[in-house]
Amino acid sequence: MTEPFLVVEDLTVKFPTEDGLVNAVTELSYSVEQGRTLGIVGESGSGKSVSSMAVLGLHDARTARITGSIKVGGQEVVGLGESKLRKLRGREVAMIFQDALAALHPFYKVGSQLAEAYLVHHPSASKRDARRKAIEMLDRVGIPQPDRRVDDFPHQFSGGMRQRAMIAMGLINDPKLLIADEPTTALDVTVQAQILDLLQDLQREFDSAVIIITHDLGVIAEMADDILVMYGGRGVEHGPAKEVLTRPLMPYTWGLLSSVPDVAGDTAAKLVPIPGNPPSLLDPPSGCAFHPRCAHVGKVQGNLCSTTLPRLEPGPSGPGHLTRCHLSDPAAVFETEVLPVIAPDLLEES
Protein backbone atom coordinates (compact mmCIF):
# COMPACT_ATOMS: atom_id res chain seq x y z
CA MET A 1 0.00 0.00 0.00
CA THR A 2 1.41 3.33 -1.02
CA GLU A 3 0.95 6.51 0.91
CA PRO A 4 -2.52 8.13 0.44
CA PHE A 5 -2.59 10.95 -2.10
CA LEU A 6 -3.48 13.60 0.47
CA VAL A 7 -2.17 13.43 4.01
CA VAL A 8 -3.06 16.22 6.43
CA GLU A 9 -1.37 16.10 9.80
CA ASP A 10 -1.83 18.34 12.82
CA LEU A 11 -3.06 21.18 10.65
CA THR A 12 -3.69 24.35 12.62
CA VAL A 13 -4.91 27.57 11.01
CA LYS A 14 -5.19 30.78 13.02
CA PHE A 15 -6.19 34.25 11.89
CA PRO A 16 -5.11 37.22 13.99
CA THR A 17 -7.91 39.80 14.10
CA GLU A 18 -8.53 43.01 16.03
CA ASP A 19 -10.49 41.05 18.57
CA GLY A 20 -7.90 38.35 19.08
CA LEU A 21 -6.77 35.13 17.49
CA VAL A 22 -9.42 33.15 15.60
CA ASN A 23 -8.68 29.45 16.01
CA ALA A 24 -10.27 28.38 12.75
CA VAL A 25 -8.72 24.89 12.56
CA THR A 26 -6.90 23.08 15.37
CA GLU A 27 -4.73 19.96 15.09
CA LEU A 28 -6.69 18.41 12.25
CA SER A 29 -5.48 15.15 10.68
CA TYR A 30 -6.96 13.13 7.85
CA SER A 31 -5.97 11.42 4.62
CA VAL A 32 -7.66 10.61 1.31
CA GLU A 33 -6.62 7.84 -1.08
CA GLN A 34 -7.06 7.85 -4.85
CA GLY A 35 -10.52 6.75 -5.88
CA ARG A 36 -11.99 7.43 -2.43
CA THR A 37 -14.36 10.14 -1.27
CA LEU A 38 -14.05 11.86 2.10
CA GLY A 39 -17.07 13.78 3.32
CA ILE A 40 -16.45 16.63 5.75
CA VAL A 41 -19.57 17.66 7.73
CA GLY A 42 -19.96 20.54 10.11
CA GLU A 43 -21.82 23.77 10.67
CA SER A 44 -20.66 27.19 9.58
CA GLY A 45 -17.59 28.10 11.58
CA SER A 46 -16.52 24.52 12.17
CA GLY A 47 -13.41 24.99 10.02
CA LYS A 48 -14.36 22.69 7.18
CA SER A 49 -13.83 25.22 4.40
CA VAL A 50 -10.76 26.83 5.98
CA SER A 51 -9.01 23.47 6.25
CA SER A 52 -9.60 22.57 2.62
CA MET A 53 -8.56 25.98 1.37
CA ALA A 54 -5.28 25.36 3.16
CA VAL A 55 -4.79 22.26 1.00
CA LEU A 56 -4.69 24.53 -2.05
CA GLY A 57 -2.57 27.09 -0.26
CA LEU A 58 -5.30 29.69 -0.72
CA HIS A 59 -4.77 31.49 2.59
CA ASP A 60 -2.86 34.73 2.53
CA ALA A 61 0.51 33.96 4.13
CA ARG A 62 0.58 37.46 5.64
CA THR A 63 -2.62 37.03 7.62
CA ALA A 64 -3.01 33.31 8.27
CA ARG A 65 -0.81 31.37 10.64
CA ILE A 66 -0.63 27.81 9.38
CA THR A 67 1.28 25.04 11.13
CA GLY A 68 1.34 21.30 10.69
CA SER A 69 1.74 19.39 7.46
CA ILE A 70 -0.27 18.92 4.26
CA LYS A 71 1.25 16.46 1.79
CA VAL A 72 -0.26 16.35 -1.71
CA GLY A 73 1.19 13.44 -3.67
CA GLY A 74 4.18 13.48 -1.35
CA GLN A 75 4.82 17.21 -1.68
CA GLU A 76 4.57 19.47 1.36
CA VAL A 77 2.14 22.35 0.76
CA VAL A 78 2.49 24.29 4.01
CA GLY A 79 5.09 27.01 3.45
CA LEU A 80 5.34 26.36 -0.29
CA GLY A 81 6.06 29.39 -2.48
CA GLU A 82 3.39 31.00 -4.64
CA SER A 83 4.91 29.93 -7.98
CA LYS A 84 5.09 26.30 -6.94
CA LEU A 85 1.58 26.44 -5.51
CA ARG A 86 0.32 27.70 -8.85
CA LYS A 87 1.68 24.58 -10.55
CA LEU A 88 -0.21 22.49 -8.02
CA ARG A 89 -3.54 24.29 -8.27
CA GLY A 90 -5.72 23.09 -11.09
CA ARG A 91 -3.15 20.48 -12.11
CA GLU A 92 -2.96 18.24 -9.05
CA VAL A 93 -5.74 19.68 -6.92
CA ALA A 94 -8.88 21.43 -8.16
CA MET A 95 -11.69 23.03 -6.24
CA ILE A 96 -15.39 23.44 -7.03
CA PHE A 97 -17.11 26.25 -5.21
CA GLN A 98 -20.67 26.64 -3.98
CA ASP A 99 -21.61 29.71 -5.97
CA ALA A 100 -20.87 29.08 -9.63
CA LEU A 101 -22.11 32.49 -10.69
CA ALA A 102 -19.56 34.19 -8.44
CA ALA A 103 -16.78 31.80 -9.42
CA LEU A 104 -17.12 32.31 -13.17
CA HIS A 105 -16.06 35.66 -14.65
CA PRO A 106 -19.14 37.41 -16.05
CA PHE A 107 -17.24 39.25 -18.84
CA TYR A 108 -15.60 36.23 -20.45
CA LYS A 109 -17.19 33.44 -22.42
CA VAL A 110 -17.45 30.12 -20.62
CA GLY A 111 -15.27 28.54 -23.32
CA SER A 112 -12.44 31.01 -22.95
CA GLN A 113 -12.40 30.56 -19.19
CA LEU A 114 -12.14 26.80 -19.63
CA ALA A 115 -9.46 27.19 -22.30
CA GLU A 116 -7.46 29.50 -20.05
CA ALA A 117 -7.50 26.93 -17.26
CA TYR A 118 -6.09 24.43 -19.75
CA LEU A 119 -3.46 26.74 -21.23
CA VAL A 120 -2.05 27.65 -17.81
CA HIS A 121 -0.89 24.08 -17.35
CA HIS A 122 -0.24 23.30 -21.02
CA PRO A 123 1.82 26.29 -22.21
CA SER A 124 2.81 24.53 -25.42
CA ALA A 125 -0.78 23.86 -26.50
CA SER A 126 -2.35 26.07 -29.17
CA LYS A 127 -5.48 28.10 -28.61
CA ARG A 128 -7.34 25.83 -31.00
CA ASP A 129 -6.33 22.76 -28.96
CA ALA A 130 -7.52 24.48 -25.79
CA ARG A 131 -10.85 25.33 -27.36
CA ARG A 132 -11.28 21.76 -28.55
CA LYS A 133 -10.48 20.55 -25.04
CA ALA A 134 -13.03 23.00 -23.58
CA ILE A 135 -15.76 21.68 -25.90
CA GLU A 136 -14.81 18.10 -25.02
CA MET A 137 -15.08 18.83 -21.29
CA LEU A 138 -18.46 20.61 -21.66
CA ASP A 139 -19.69 17.56 -23.53
CA ARG A 140 -18.31 15.29 -20.81
CA VAL A 141 -20.27 17.09 -18.07
CA GLY A 142 -23.48 16.87 -20.07
CA ILE A 143 -23.95 20.36 -21.53
CA PRO A 144 -26.13 19.99 -24.64
CA GLN A 145 -24.69 21.33 -27.94
CA PRO A 146 -21.26 22.05 -26.40
CA ASP A 147 -19.80 23.43 -29.64
CA ARG A 148 -22.43 26.21 -29.54
CA ARG A 149 -22.65 26.77 -25.79
CA VAL A 150 -18.87 27.17 -25.53
CA ASP A 151 -19.33 30.73 -26.80
CA ASP A 152 -22.01 31.62 -24.25
CA PHE A 153 -21.46 33.92 -21.31
CA PRO A 154 -22.05 32.57 -17.79
CA HIS A 155 -25.33 34.47 -17.43
CA GLN A 156 -26.73 32.57 -20.41
CA PHE A 157 -26.33 29.29 -18.50
CA SER A 158 -28.87 28.02 -15.95
CA GLY A 159 -27.74 27.34 -12.37
CA GLY A 160 -27.21 23.64 -12.98
CA MET A 161 -25.30 24.29 -16.22
CA ARG A 162 -23.00 26.79 -14.49
CA GLN A 163 -22.21 24.21 -11.84
CA ARG A 164 -21.45 21.73 -14.62
CA ALA A 165 -19.20 24.26 -16.33
CA MET A 166 -17.33 24.74 -13.04
CA ILE A 167 -16.86 21.01 -12.71
CA ALA A 168 -15.61 20.92 -16.31
CA MET A 169 -13.11 23.65 -15.47
CA GLY A 170 -12.00 21.80 -12.36
CA LEU A 171 -11.42 18.57 -14.24
CA ILE A 172 -9.88 19.96 -17.43
CA ASN A 173 -6.35 19.13 -16.30
CA ASP A 174 -7.23 15.71 -14.86
CA PRO A 175 -6.50 16.63 -11.22
CA LYS A 176 -5.81 13.78 -8.84
CA LEU A 177 -7.68 15.49 -5.99
CA LEU A 178 -10.97 17.33 -6.34
CA ILE A 179 -12.31 19.42 -3.46
CA ALA A 180 -16.02 20.21 -3.77
CA ASP A 181 -17.08 22.86 -1.25
CA GLU A 182 -20.89 22.70 -0.89
CA PRO A 183 -21.15 21.85 -4.61
CA THR A 184 -24.95 21.52 -4.66
CA THR A 185 -26.17 23.72 -1.81
CA ALA A 186 -27.66 26.42 -4.05
CA LEU A 187 -29.32 23.95 -6.43
CA ASP A 188 -32.76 22.35 -6.61
CA VAL A 189 -32.99 18.69 -5.61
CA THR A 190 -33.43 17.36 -9.13
CA VAL A 191 -30.42 19.34 -10.37
CA GLN A 192 -28.51 18.34 -7.24
CA ALA A 193 -29.14 14.71 -8.10
CA GLN A 194 -27.81 15.27 -11.63
CA ILE A 195 -24.64 16.96 -10.33
CA LEU A 196 -23.97 14.29 -7.71
CA ASP A 197 -24.39 11.55 -10.32
CA LEU A 198 -22.00 13.42 -12.58
CA LEU A 199 -19.38 13.83 -9.84
CA GLN A 200 -19.54 10.14 -9.07
CA ASP A 201 -19.27 9.07 -12.71
CA LEU A 202 -16.31 11.38 -13.27
CA GLN A 203 -14.59 10.16 -10.14
CA ARG A 204 -14.82 6.58 -11.35
CA GLU A 205 -13.54 7.59 -14.75
CA PHE A 206 -10.56 9.61 -13.52
CA ASP A 207 -9.92 7.59 -10.32
CA SER A 208 -9.37 10.85 -8.46
CA ALA A 209 -9.57 11.46 -4.74
CA VAL A 210 -12.55 13.61 -3.76
CA ILE A 211 -13.28 15.71 -0.70
CA ILE A 212 -16.88 16.81 -0.45
CA ILE A 213 -17.68 19.49 2.09
CA THR A 214 -21.30 19.94 3.07
CA HIS A 215 -23.74 20.39 5.92
CA ASP A 216 -26.24 18.05 4.24
CA LEU A 217 -26.02 14.62 5.83
CA GLY A 218 -28.05 13.09 2.99
CA VAL A 219 -25.51 14.18 0.38
CA ILE A 220 -22.70 12.83 2.55
CA ALA A 221 -24.50 9.52 3.02
CA GLU A 222 -24.85 9.01 -0.72
CA MET A 223 -21.40 10.22 -1.78
CA ALA A 224 -18.81 9.56 0.90
CA ASP A 225 -16.77 6.47 1.71
CA ASP A 226 -15.45 8.08 4.88
CA ILE A 227 -16.83 10.87 7.02
CA LEU A 228 -15.05 13.46 9.12
CA VAL A 229 -17.29 15.42 11.49
CA MET A 230 -15.88 18.80 12.52
CA TYR A 231 -16.86 20.98 15.45
CA GLY A 232 -15.22 24.19 16.63
CA GLY A 233 -12.23 23.70 14.30
CA ARG A 234 -11.42 20.14 15.36
CA GLY A 235 -12.26 16.71 14.04
CA VAL A 236 -14.66 15.09 16.53
CA GLU A 237 -15.59 11.86 14.75
CA HIS A 238 -13.94 10.12 11.82
CA GLY A 239 -14.66 6.76 10.23
CA PRO A 240 -16.32 4.79 7.44
CA ALA A 241 -19.54 6.50 6.29
CA LYS A 242 -21.86 3.68 7.24
CA GLU A 243 -20.33 3.35 10.71
CA VAL A 244 -20.51 7.06 11.43
CA LEU A 245 -24.11 7.45 10.27
CA THR A 246 -25.59 4.26 11.73
CA ARG A 247 -23.45 3.79 14.85
CA PRO A 248 -22.23 7.30 15.66
CA LEU A 249 -20.16 7.63 18.83
CA MET A 250 -19.97 11.38 19.42
CA PRO A 251 -22.92 13.31 20.92
CA TYR A 252 -22.48 16.12 18.37
CA THR A 253 -23.01 13.64 15.52
CA TRP A 254 -26.10 12.38 17.36
CA GLY A 255 -27.27 15.97 17.56
CA LEU A 256 -26.81 16.47 13.83
CA LEU A 257 -28.75 13.29 13.08
CA SER A 258 -31.58 14.19 15.46
CA SER A 259 -31.84 17.73 14.05
CA VAL A 260 -32.77 16.75 10.50
CA PRO A 261 -36.13 15.27 9.59
CA ASP A 262 -36.11 12.33 7.21
CA VAL A 263 -37.99 12.22 3.95
CA ALA A 264 -38.95 8.57 4.38
CA GLY A 265 -38.66 7.59 8.05
CA ASP A 266 -41.18 7.18 10.85
CA THR A 267 -43.40 10.24 11.36
CA ALA A 268 -43.35 9.51 15.09
CA ALA A 269 -39.64 10.36 15.09
CA LYS A 270 -38.90 13.51 17.04
CA LEU A 271 -36.82 16.42 15.96
CA VAL A 272 -34.43 17.04 18.87
CA PRO A 273 -32.40 20.21 18.40
CA ILE A 274 -28.94 20.87 19.80
CA PRO A 275 -29.49 23.65 22.35
CA GLY A 276 -27.46 26.85 22.18
CA ASN A 277 -25.17 28.12 19.45
CA PRO A 278 -21.91 27.02 17.82
CA PRO A 279 -18.84 28.01 19.88
CA SER A 280 -16.83 31.16 19.44
CA LEU A 281 -13.54 30.50 17.67
CA LEU A 282 -12.04 33.53 19.41
CA ASP A 283 -12.51 32.04 22.82
CA PRO A 284 -13.27 28.31 22.50
CA PRO A 285 -14.85 26.56 25.49
CA SER A 286 -12.46 24.78 27.83
CA GLY A 287 -12.21 21.00 27.67
CA CYS A 288 -14.43 19.47 25.02
CA ALA A 289 -15.66 22.29 22.77
CA PHE A 290 -19.09 20.68 22.62
CA HIS A 291 -19.64 20.35 26.38
CA PRO A 292 -21.76 23.54 26.81
CA ARG A 293 -24.34 22.10 24.37
CA CYS A 294 -24.00 18.42 25.21
CA ALA A 295 -26.90 16.64 26.93
CA HIS A 296 -24.72 13.77 28.12
CA VAL A 297 -22.20 15.64 30.25
CA GLY A 298 -23.87 14.29 33.39
CA LYS A 299 -22.83 10.73 32.50
CA VAL A 300 -19.13 11.54 32.82
CA GLN A 301 -17.44 11.43 36.23
CA GLY A 302 -16.58 14.80 37.76
CA ASN A 303 -16.22 17.76 35.44
CA LEU A 304 -13.88 16.05 32.97
CA CYS A 305 -15.83 17.39 30.00
CA SER A 306 -15.29 21.03 30.92
CA THR A 307 -11.66 20.67 31.99
CA THR A 308 -9.99 18.12 29.73
CA LEU A 309 -10.03 17.90 25.95
CA PRO A 310 -10.78 14.29 25.00
CA ARG A 311 -8.42 12.73 22.44
CA LEU A 312 -9.59 11.68 18.99
CA GLU A 313 -9.05 7.95 19.38
CA PRO A 314 -10.53 4.64 18.25
CA GLY A 315 -13.91 3.86 19.75
CA PRO A 316 -15.35 0.48 20.74
CA SER A 317 -16.27 -0.47 17.15
CA GLY A 318 -12.72 -0.83 15.87
CA PRO A 319 -9.54 1.04 15.01
CA GLY A 320 -10.99 2.75 11.91
CA HIS A 321 -13.72 4.65 13.75
CA LEU A 322 -12.32 7.53 15.82
CA THR A 323 -14.24 9.64 18.30
CA ARG A 324 -13.46 12.52 20.63
CA CYS A 325 -15.59 11.95 23.72
CA HIS A 326 -15.23 11.11 27.42
CA LEU A 327 -18.29 8.82 27.53
CA SER A 328 -17.23 5.31 28.54
CA ASP A 329 -19.80 3.48 26.40
CA PRO A 330 -21.19 5.89 23.81
CA ALA A 331 -22.56 3.09 21.61
CA ALA A 332 -24.88 1.92 24.40
CA VAL A 333 -26.09 5.47 25.12
CA PHE A 334 -26.90 5.93 21.44
CA GLU A 335 -28.77 2.62 21.19
CA THR A 336 -30.83 2.96 24.35
CA GLU A 337 -31.43 6.71 24.62
CA VAL A 338 -31.04 8.47 21.30
CA LEU A 339 -32.16 6.01 18.64
CA PRO A 340 -35.62 5.26 20.14
CA VAL A 341 -36.43 8.98 19.99
CA ILE A 342 -35.05 9.94 16.59
CA ALA A 343 -35.78 6.78 14.59
CA PRO A 344 -38.23 4.41 16.31
CA ASP A 345 -38.70 2.53 13.06
CA LEU A 346 -35.04 1.52 12.86
CA LEU A 347 -35.25 -0.29 16.18
CA GLU A 348 -37.82 -2.77 14.94
CA GLU A 349 -35.78 -3.50 11.82
CA SER A 350 -32.56 -4.31 13.66
Binding site: A193, A221, K242, L245
Partner: peptide
Protein backbone atom coordinates in the same frame (compact mmCIF):
# COMPACT_ATOMS: atom_id res chain seq x y z
CA UNK B 1 -42.04 10.93 -7.81
CA UNK B 2 -38.96 12.41 -9.48
CA UNK B 3 -38.61 15.07 -6.77
CA UNK B 4 -38.84 12.51 -3.98
CA UNK B 5 -36.39 10.14 -5.62
CA UNK B 6 -33.87 12.99 -5.97
CA UNK B 7 -33.73 13.71 -2.23
CA UNK B 8 -30.54 12.25 -0.78
CA UNK B 9 -31.34 9.82 2.00
CA UNK B 10 -29.23 9.51 5.13
CA UNK B 11 -30.13 5.85 5.43
CA UNK B 12 -28.45 5.10 2.11
CA UNK B 13 -25.04 5.30 3.81
CA UNK B 14 -22.65 2.71 2.46
CA UNK B 15 -25.05 1.51 -0.22
CA UNK B 16 -23.93 4.07 -2.80
CA UNK B 17 -26.44 6.05 -4.78
CA UNK B 18 -29.87 4.55 -5.43
CA UNK B 19 -31.49 4.33 -8.80
CA UNK B 20 -33.47 7.46 -9.29
CA UNK B 21 -35.85 8.94 -11.81
CA UNK B 22 -33.66 11.25 -13.83
CA UNK B 23 -35.26 14.40 -15.15
CA UNK B 24 -33.57 15.61 -18.30
CA UNK B 25 -33.02 19.26 -19.09
CA UNK B 26 -34.24 22.34 -17.30
Amino acid sequence: QALLSAVPDIKSAGHGRRERIRLEGD
